[in-house]
Design a protein around this nucleic acid. Sequence first.
DNA 1: AATGAATGAGGGTTCATTCAT
DNA 2: TATGAATGAACCCTCATTCAT
Lengths: 225, 225, 225, 225
Amino acid sequence: MADARSGAKKPRKARERRRDKEVRPQQIVAAAFEEFAEKGFAGARLEDVASRAKVSKGLPYLYFKTKVELFKAVIRSVITSHFEVIREEMETTDLTVEQFLKGPFLHFIQDIVGSRRAFIVRLLIAEGHKHPELTEFYYEVVVSRGMETLQKLIDRGIASGEFRSTRLRDFPQLLIAPVLTAVIWRSLFERYRHLDTDALLATNIELLVEAVKASPIKSAEGDGR
Amino acid sequence: MADARSGAKKPRKARERRRDKEVRPQQIVAAAFEEFAEKGFAGARLEDVASRAKVSKGLPYLYFKTKVELFKAVIRSVITSHFEVIREEMETTDLTVEQFLKGPFLHFIQDIVGSRRAFIVRLLIAEGHKHPELTEFYYEVVVSRGMETLQKLIDRGIASGEFRSTRLRDFPQLLIAPVLTAVIWRSLFERYRHLDTDALLATNIELLVEAVKASPIKSAEGDGR
Amino acid sequence: MADARSGAKKPRKARERRRDKEVRPQQIVAAAFEEFAEKGFAGARLEDVASRAKVSKGLPYLYFKTKVELFKAVIRSVITSHFEVIREEMETTDLTVEQFLKGPFLHFIQDIVGSRRAFIVRLLIAEGHKHPELTEFYYEVVVSRGMETLQKLIDRGIASGEFRSTRLRDFPQLLIAPVLTAVIWRSLFERYRHLDTDALLATNIELLVEAVKASPIKSAEGDGR
Amino acid sequence: MADARSGAKKPRKARERRRDKEVRPQQIVAAAFEEFAEKGFAGARLEDVASRAKVSKGLPYLYFKTKVELFKAVIRSVITSHFEVIREEMETTDLTVEQFLKGPFLHFIQDIVGSRRAFIVRLLIAEGHKHPELTEFYYEVVVSRGMETLQKLIDRGIASGEFRSTRLRDFPQLLIAPVLTAVIWRSLFERYRHLDTDALLATNIELLVEAVKASPIKSAEGDGR
DNA sequence: AATGAATGAGGGTTCATTCAT
DNA sequence: TATGAATGAACCCTCATTCAT
């Protein structure tokens, strides 16, 4: 399944061993991710995690002291890194804010919904309050920074005259809110009624942008509100 | 409904018992609600439910065959009834759509966020996929009808010329999305950063209405899009 | 096995149930005693305790929160009460001190060696340092009081002129020391070489008494014995 | 014993390795001793033994087939040799028996109590009955010989007229009994109440000697008994 | 209808032991 | 000889569920 081509008896195993050693935690975390995603924290059995990762029952404990520790590792593995990319882009782009929201940003959140990362949301909602440090970690790394960055983006739009000054600035959550809805719909209601989540997200951004955009003409007259 | 006048020896006790008989299940469901809300389905112990309801450990089994059955009863008890009221109002009101959204509807969703009912959301997200019938029930009774009703409302706005014809009509979820966000924020992140959920919800509606409203002047000129 | 004679189907069970409820903890402690005595704390399996007590695996946990708790209960059950009797006797007797030591006291310690209580010594030696509260409890209830009482006894002998003033008074442990030896010999070496523990204990007391006795005439005539 | 002068490439390493080869088992046994002493047989983890000995987890298995085997090696290592010295001295000394008991013998047993060797007592008491061969070995090498030697010593005293003929001869354990008491007191009760174990042991010997000594006058007449 | 003692399957965790390197 | 990753049996403890009363 991997790059095995050496005809000798053991060299392949040797290489695998060595690689395994480095990959094991990831393997286990990946398996745990699936199990947790499917069954929730309490519902997931470490034995199943192990056998999904094709290792023995006891091995996960070599890398993760407890089930909770493994759970945290799972959360961290999903969170890490994905958000930095879009953040940087957001701060360095030379697109207009509207273009950015309707382009890269929209794609980013559409991707989230489609990706397995979305499960993390369910996990956090379900178990978060039992693991405050984890929630705090998530808040610091993802939520807090995300909100800040969005706020800056909107502010930039306002400063440049592209947007009116509205309360959207104070509630950047509104740009994200449908992501949650989409994720949850997919995992709960999709089987009863299909929801085009891409369009849902696009529509939300369109409408919000429409609402806050300084219309060429309007700007001459003041913004009614 | 509970008026018993049986001339037995201990009339008062008899009456109490009769009342108990009717009230017991509610008592238990209420206690279960609290436990499930605090600890999730798997984390809640039937023994704790029982003692919270001040009944014996075995009693819940007289009314609910299994823990799952009890869980379902909890979900149903929260769902039931609360939504019918607003639905009827929505269909019979003679407010303009904008007035309705910014008035009764806004209050309704603001209430949800504040109420204990909000926990149900977390429960459903966490456990829903394991209980499809339950999810289906919830979908039918709350989600599906809710979306339909909102759609009708928006359509009414369009028909009356109050609103432009936008895709909001296809995604009434957008009017609700921040409710989820608010509920989850409250239960997970409030301790790190306060969020004014009432304002969040209000802002969302304002912005969406702003976006879809047919502005008197605009209508003459077309809406740029 | 018990007093079953009622021919009816259930009455016996009913009676048993009720009695069981009160006796269960004792039953379990008794079974635990055997298991711990045989295998030590770590070596004993709660499941074996349960089946020895003819109850289900989980029942012990209804009465004892943890294995350690059960262990403590075992220790307590053995300690309690047995020592008070001899203590009182020691303080109220009108025998001479020599008579008391060679009579009631000797019998008391001889009994200990023969009884199952002796196992407790092994348990404490083996596990005591891991359960300081337990050890402290044992020290307070048995050791400390025992030493005090013996000291008083010896002091009485000195005061009455029966004994010389020797350091035995400071080390009443010497009157007890062979009990430990006897217990341990029995459980470890008896199979290789028989030891008459009764005689061992008797000899120790004889010799110590001989050593501390103030025989006024002795030097002149030999020791009346 | 370890002088290797092989002219290989890395002489020093070679020599080290050779030395290691001989020292390793001792290293491991020493580490195991500490662990067993602290935590008992079941409580000690082989991994801790290994890391205390600064070797890898698997190495102990190269020298000791199982944990039990290692345990036995520990016991043997402590037993061996220490007792031969005093035995020889006992048989070749030209001190009087009283002098010997109050001098070298007393020092010997006082040393035991202070030394780490004392832990062995706890280990044997706790686990001995599970390892009969071990117990037998201990009995043969230490107990049996020790008792015999003491008996001979006492007999020598009697033969020389230094001692009366008493039952102490049949129970030389009495000279040793307080050692057990001292060891156990130290490890269990010392924290609650200090015991001067040296004085305890000295007192025991003094009193026993006093009891069996043929008083100058008595010796002329014979000891009535 | 109600109690709560009792059951026993199930899951987290540990650790002696193995084995590929 | 030495390493330490990996195995898997075993054991403590929990808790949904039953059932005699």
